[in-house]
Write a protein that binds this DNA or RNA. Structure first.
Length: 597
RNA sequence: GGUUCCGUAGCUCAGCUGGAUAGAGCAACUGCCUUCUAAGCAGUAGGUCACAGGUUCGAAUCCUGUCGGAAUCGCCA
């Protein structure tokens, strides 16, 4: 039990005994006392003062007296206007500190919850390489999965690869026309980039054909449909659906190239999956559900045989679920895969990490599922995230303003190398060790930069200026960790053993030490909130605050000097604690922390 | 036009379920490397929390409206 829960309970008792009002202890909200005031936890008493029909100050004093009398851990209290500030005894903080400082799993929930949480993320198309938008998706999906695991959930990370459809056929057609048998081996290109190259070539050629047709007097709309290369792609799609062996062989070959490329990018980003679904296996799913819905009469069939869901009662419009020719649309498939996933995992929650351009889609998905009688539709949660914008505006593939994931990562590594060498940081490093460090720093900078922003918000990414190594950045936190490791190494050289903690209670904590301990104390709660809100940003901003606070402490405290051995032990232990929490937080964000840099 | 989301310092972002004097970083300016790593620290300056109403002891936070920006409203995925 934490002090907060004990305080809540006692306050609840106090209100009951003083004012005969019963308030659930969970409804008693405590906040951390602001730095400018004395105390550790603050109760805002205005609501209870009203209840007690007394003025706030009087009520605060009464509650304060009661709590101080009943709770030995509360050493004192003070009242300012309607704010009741409790001071928790130093013994409590020291005890908390010595109980937890060496716990590498501090804050991690060890009790396992039974039902899994399924997190779908990444979900790439196989016709082009991953770009900056995918990076946000992948980092968010991976990190939130790890955060949920740390909160005791059994998490299944899944990827639904969109491996079929007109887009991949476009790449195939272009490759047949212009490829001359080019392969990743023959060209030295990464497979996904190679296939992407042909997708771009297709588009170029397609545009040219449209222009030619326009020049011949055809309408724009017609030209877009009649362009020969597009018709060819559509023919390839028909052949694919008819399981034409030659088409399938090419499709398999080119997809294999792409997967090979994706795997490399995923590995660089450090993300992984427990299960991969392929749309080619699932794209026919969902039709049965629709039929069932028709029989139940919750869906409507129009004269042309197309099937619709009427969502006007829910404030939306009508949504197509089956085309007039009986083929399925995106929504049909998603209905099917949702059911499949529910059956596969019997999950407590189905999380989809998908961009906010699909907010409407998921709203409809949930509503239709419910209409069809699947109560578990409420378990579907769309973890929606905003777009990544560039200084020039939106990323547009046609205008070539897309930031390629692999290019960006390489560029980051170059930057890390350049800056590190300028600082002369790695002159003593072996070459291999230095390269490894540049890698860690580059990915740390990139990941932290993206994860620290609230997912719902669109974010701006300036490739030239945004990725920095100073200030609120990944490398700053990594740097803090490296210095902590350095202190612990030096302490070991001085034969300072931090195991002698039973001696701690006789040492007074300085204000700065106490402040750090209070920040550390908050970690489990932050972790829980990050899980509940599906927001790695919460954790990222917390760990920055911690690192910043530690740096201030580091600067004006002689951790290893000019003091008694016991004080040194205490401070080194504090370093250990801060280091552990930084390491854990960063790990959950997917960021490695080096021991020296 | 309908719906949803966003709007906080010059720029990029925090601000937990309403609480005390709105916080960081970057950029600018001042100091600090003989002392555990200066990728750092301390400080100065920078705000009508888009705007207007409302709710209440109390609003950046909740409600309504207005103005800006984004997304979406395809028999594309």
């Amino acid at each position: 039990m934490t002090v907060e829960t004990i305080l809540q309970k006692t306050i609840s008792d106090a209100i009951l005994s003083l004012y005969s009002e019963s308030i659930d202890q969970k409804g008693i909200i405590l906040q951390n006392t602001k730095k400018e005031f004395n105390g550790d936890f603050t109760l805002v008493v205005f609501p209870y003062a009203k209840m007690a029909k007394k003025n706030p100050e009087q009520a605060a004093n009464e509650i304060g007296e009661y709590v101080k009398r009943e709770l030995p851990v509360v050493s004192d209290f003070n009242v300012i206007k309607g704010f009741l500030n409790f001071s928790v005894s130093d013994e409590y903080w020291r005890q908390f500190f010595s109980d937890n400082f060496s716990n590498v799993d501090f804050g991690i929930q060890s009790e396992r919850k039974e039902a899994p949480v399924v997190v779908e993320y990444s979900s790439p198309n196989t016709n082009k390489p991953l770009h900056l938008g995918h990076i946000r998706n992948n980092l968010l999906g991976w990190s939130i999965s790890e955060i949920l695991k740390a909160n005791g959930y059994c998490v299944k990370k899944v990827n639904l690869v969109n491996d079929r459809g007109i887009h991949i056929c476009k790449s195939m057609v272009a490759w047949l026309h212009f490829g001359h048998g080019e392969t990743p081996e023959s060209s030295g290109m990464k497979g996904d980039h190679l296939v992407g190259k042909y997708y771009v070539l297709f588009d170029k050629h397609y545009k040219k054909e449209i222009n030619d047709l326009l020049a011949n007097g055809m309408s724009k709309e017609e030209a877009e449909k009649k362009a020969p290369i597009l018709q060819e792609a559509q023919e390839v799609l028909r052949k694919w659906e008819a399981k034409d062996e030659e088409t399938l062989a090419l499709w398999r070959k080119m997809n294999a190239w792409v997967y090979d490329g994706f795997d490399k990018t995923y590995a660089k980003m450090g993300v992984d999956f427990d299960k991969i679904y392929y749309e080619s296996d699932t794209y026919l799913l969902g039709k049965d559900i629709i039929k069932e819905g028709l029989q139940k009469g919750v869906l409507i069939q129009k004269a042309d045989n197309s099937v619709w869901a009427d969502l006007t009662p829910d404030g939306l419009d009508e949504k197509l679920l089956l085309r007039s020719d009986g083929t399925s649309v995106y929504m049909t498939q998603d209905l099917g895969t949702a059911l499949l996933r529910h059956n596969d995992f019997d999950a407590e929650r189905l999380i989809y990490v998908v961009g906010n351009e699909q907010n409407y889609h998921f709203e409809v998905l949930r509503l239709v599922m419910k209409k069809l009688g699947y109560e578990w539709a409420e378990k579907i949660y769309h973890l929606s995230y905003g777009m990544v914008e560039l200084p020039e505006g939106k990323m547009k593939s046609r205008e070539g303003t897309v930031v390629d994931a692999d290019d960006l990562i390489d560029e980051m590594i170059d930057t890390a190398r350049k800056i590190s060498e300028e600082h002369g940081k790695t002159s003593a490093f072996e070459k291999e060790e230095a390269e490894h460090l540049y890698n860690i720093l580059a990915m740390g900078a990139l990941k932290y930069f993206i994860l620290k922003v609230d997912p719902v918000k669109n974010m701006l990414f300036n490739p030239k200026e945004s990725i920095d190594f100073n200030g609120n950045t990944g490398p700053f936190i990594q740097y803090t960790h490296a210095r902590i490791c350095s202190i612990i190494r030096k302490a070991a050289e001085k034969n300072i053993s931090i195991e002698k903690l039973e001696q701690f209670p006789i040492i007074d904590l300085s204000a700065k030490e106490k402040n750090l301990i209070k920040i550390l104390y908050a970690f489990p709660n932050i972790l829980k909130q990050a899980g509940e809100n599906y927001s790695p940003a919460l954790l990222a901003n917390y760990v920055y605050d911690l690192a910043k606070e530690f740096n201030g402490f580091y600067q004006d405290t002689s951790i290893l000097h000019e003091t008694t051995e016991l004080q040194i032990i205490l401070r080194v232990s504090l370093c250990r604690f801060v280091g552990n929490v930084i390491k854990t937080s960063m790990k959950l964000l997917g960021i490695e922390v080096p021991e020296r840099m």
